[in-house]
Amino acid sequence: MSTRHDIAAPPTEGGAAPGRPAPATGPTEADRRRRARLSRRWQRDLRWSPYAFVSPFFVLFLAFGLFPLIYTGWASLHQVELTAPTDMTWVGLRNYTRIFDDEFFWNAAKNTLMIGIISTVPQLLMAMGIAHILNYKLRASTFYRVVMLAPYATSIAAASLVFVLLFGRDYGMINWALDQVGIGKVDWQNDHWASKVAVSSIIIWRWTGYNALIYLAAMQAIPQDLYESAALDGASRWQQFLHVTLPSLRPTILFTAVVSTIGASQVFGEPLLFDANKGASGGAEHQFQTLGLYLYEQGWVNQHLGRASAIAWTMFLILIVIGIVNYVISRRLRASS
């Protein structure tokens, strides 16, 4: 094994490699040829192995990520039925005009936006506050961090089913508590606003702790002397938070906002399970039907895969717009700091 190592040493660093015979002693012709072959192999290895290392990821990505995404766009221009997913008839942009004419599409878009706001904004604000507290010197800090990750370990299905019970109109824990304090019962399933709040609360519950940890990590990376000099300038704790913590956290805040926005645009399981009987329609009056649910309804309940593809592609275009906005904002941020 050791001999092989000596021979295969890189020729570029050959002079420095210890223990190899000096050229002056005159290696035989065969020896030289063998060394040349090995060094060619060495070069090939250096040159191509990086591609070999990254290619499995990209092959999988092409097959199960990029290709399906682009093919969704192609399928959106066809009529495709769920019962025969391989039969495609060209219909041009008709799928798009159909969904844009459908009031339930706009309803779903509106619901997605509202649920997105109701779930993302309080979630990130709370996460920020919790992270700030976790950044204090605390006893048993690891315990709190693990505990607030427990919702993250809970699946959408399990979480949604519990919340359905907790939000039950007649026997739910939440209405019971509201009744006790004299607010009265809320119809969490049928009321247009309350149902959106209820669905959002599932999302908030699952993700706040996770985001708090991400903020905490960013807070711990802020150099201590920034706080010290702010304290010397007479800044209060609150002012330190406003003028030191928040500005340093800007990239992280943007990152979590983007990730949460993408997540919010895809919400599916929570509203699907929130009304088990209505399923894909998202409530009796579609009051909490999201775009994800609308896609599922068109594709798998009404069996129009082409139309579902048009919805998916529309969602993709919306995300691209969000991505561009994000890029512009982050460039501004970088320019200003």
Partner: peptide, 26 residues
Amino acid sequence: LMLLVIGTMMVPPQLSVIPLYMMVAK
């Protein structure tokens, strides 16, 4: 390529379910 990886993180896999479903059916 690294930029492509990061860009990939931003595209939710849910948007690709229809062709994947066709693949699975086929």
